[in-house]
Design a binder for these strands. Structure first.
Length: 348
DNA sequence: TCCTCTATTGTCATGCGGGG
DNA sequence: CCCCGCATGACAATAGAGGA
């Protein structure tokens, strides 16, 4: 923990706040006026020089004011930030956004993402619960053309997933209906992570019975349901970031949008944040992704402690209104947890 | 391209108050 | 009474912005 005098803290706080408001470097005169310290600009300058030496501030050029560094922001959010509680009205407003989508998990995720983006005015991201944890409810196969079958999987959560499966051998729709019935009998009620074992086990047994169709059914089920751990990511409100002057540079912006597009990097980053409970803040370079190094990421896990289902958050400029966005992320995560606990985990 | 204007800085001499 | 630390106002230096 870094030790700073009360005065230095106040100066730093004033600078960070002002910088968040204006986006402009902050000069000693401004600090002298805006802080409740009754000191002259020359005195503030000395403090600012100290803070710069310690790495909390930096100067874009000699005749400019100071801008907080990442370290400055980090100290600000860790030690100086006063959170502004969401008003009752805002809470109600957020809650009302969930009306009527509780059965469908992808809709739930999409709305959560929209809420995050709308209430923060930045970019919302939500990583849904891993498919592995969902419970098998129903599967349906439809023949599209020779060797190609559309698999429609419905989880008890309401999640629906479509996938096109290639089969070496052709199956008629009639056969597929039998396959459908067989698999539904076999798998209903199982969490997806147990489906693989069940299929393997069943294949071994069916081999003994030499039932060709059932063999194929199991093969098909395996292809449709057993997936590598791919995780989807919902992103909403990318455009909001364009309003920020920091991203006026075209190259910067391109990189940022590319990062939004290939989600795998973000997924990795979010996975890392899954380890800790509650609200977390990562600044630019801490994210270890060059494209978003001018951004910061506020996340929170959702689900019960010890059994997190996923993670959600907001990406915005480092110069972000933390006192507002942190409560939005926190509240949304808790609300989503409640919704999932009451609707989603209940059997069928 | 160059010049002027403006904002901000660092530094320095000065003054003030407390402790020895 | 002197010394020390600290706050302050004055001032020159510097660099970006904007106009000719």
């Amino acid at each position: 923990m870094i030790l700073l005098s009360e005065r230095s803290k106040k100066v730093l706080k004033t600078i960070v706040k002002d910088y968040i408001d204006t986006g402009e470097p902050v000069g000693s005169r401004t600090v002298a006026k805006k802080s409740d310290l009754n000191l002259s600009p020359a005195t503030i300058r000395n403090v600012m020089a100290d803070l710069e030496e310690m790495g909390f501030l930096f100067q874009p050029h000699t005749s400019a004011g100071r801008v907080p560094t990442e370290k400055g922001f980090r100290f600000f959010v860790d030690a100086l930030l006063e959170l502004k509680e969401l008003s009752l009205l805002e809470r109600e407003e957020i809650r009302s956004n969930y009306q009527g989508c509780k059965a469908d998990i992808s809709e739930l995720m999409r709305r959560t993402c929209k809420i995050l983006s709308a209430f923060s005015h930045y970019t919302g991201i939500v990583m849904p619960p891993p498919l592995q944890e969902t419970i098998f409810k129903h599967i349906e196969f439809i023949r599209i053309r020779r060797n190609q079958i559309l698999a429609i999987f419905v989880a008890s959560s309401g999640l629906v997933q479509n996938r096109v499966v290639e089969m070496e051998e052709d199956l008629s729709q009639d056969e597929l209906d039998k396959v459908t019935n067989y698999l539904n009998d076999l798998l209903t009620g199982l969490p997806l992570r147990e489906v693989r074992e069940r299929i393997v086990e069943e294949m071994r047994r069916e081999k003994m019975a030499y039932d060709d169709l059932l063999q194929k059914a199991l093969q098909l089920g395996g292809k449709a349901l057993v997936t590598e751990q791919e995780r989807d990511l919902y992103i909403e409100g990318q455009v909001n970031i364009l309003d920020e002057p920091e991203f006026a540079d075209i190259e910067q912006m391109k990189g940022l949008f590319k990062a939004f597009e290939e989600k795998s990097l973000l997924v990795k980053l979010l996975d890392r944040s899954m380890k800790a409970e509650g609200v977390q803040i990562l600044f630019g370079s801490e994210c270890e992704i060059t494209a978003i190094e001018r951004c910061s990421l506020i996340t929170s896990t959702y689900g019960q402690p010890g059994r997190f289902l996923g993670i959600l958050g907001v990406i915005g400029p480092v110069r972000m209104n933390y006192s507002r966005v942190i409560p939005v992320v926190d509240f949304t995560a808790k609300l989503l947890t409640d919704i999932l606990e009451s609707e989603w985990s209940s059997p069928l």
